[in-house]
């Protein structure tokens, strides 16, 4: 009788394991978002407001946004973000930049593509992007685990 019970428990565990496997295979991931807005004061000095939002606590434990900076190349906004891996293993990520004009409208809405990024254990890496045109004054950086 005891053997039978063990067998039943084992079966339930196996079922749970299969279910977990099945679900993992189809999981989707949220990510980290960083926004930045560039403004000019009366003297013409440029400044960047930035904000980091973590939508995924798992990812927040893996990656840290150390720094975000911006510069102008002529009249086009350039952005650089410094990322640091908090994990000891090599982790794959994907990132994407979205650009907004002074009025907050997205430029080329929905046309950005995800780019792969490999971070070695505890490695710090910079990623850069250039705005699609001179209208861009704000950006949003999204980081997620690979789909």
């Amino acid at each position: 009788m005891k053997q039978e019970r063990n067998f039943v428990v084992g079966c339930i565990a196996a079922a749970a394991a299969i279910a977990a496997l099945g679900l993992v295979g189809c999981s989707t991931t949220a990510g980290v978002e960083t926004t930045g807005k560039t403004t000019w004061d009366e003297q013409g000095a440029r400044s960047l407001e930035k904000k980091v939002i973590f939508n995924n606590s798992g990812l927040a434990g893996d990656i840290q946004i150390v720094d975000v900076k911006s510069a102008m190349a002529g009249d086009i906004l350039r952005v650089q973000a410094t990322l640091r891996s908090k994990d000891k293993d090599t982790l794959p990520f994907q990132y994407r930049f979205e650009w907004y004009d002074a009025g907050g409208f997205e430029i080329n809405s929905g046309s950005g593509s995800w780019k792969p990024l490999m971070l070695n254990g505890r490695e710090t890496k910079t990623i850069q992007a250039v705005a699609p045109d001179p209208r861009a004054k704000e950006f949003k950086l999204k980081i997620r685990e690979p789909d």
Partner: peptide, 30 residues
């Protein structure tokens, strides 16, 4: 119990059966 395992297994896996949907044109999945 074995049947139950098979049923749960099938249920969870059926979530990944053939589907048709729109994908992200900017997806970076190789």
């Amino acid at each position: 119990a074995l049947l139950a395992v098979a049923a749960i297994g099938a249920l969870s896996l059926s979530g990944c059966a053939s589907t048709m949907q729109y994908g992200d044109a900017g997806s970076a999945k190789p």
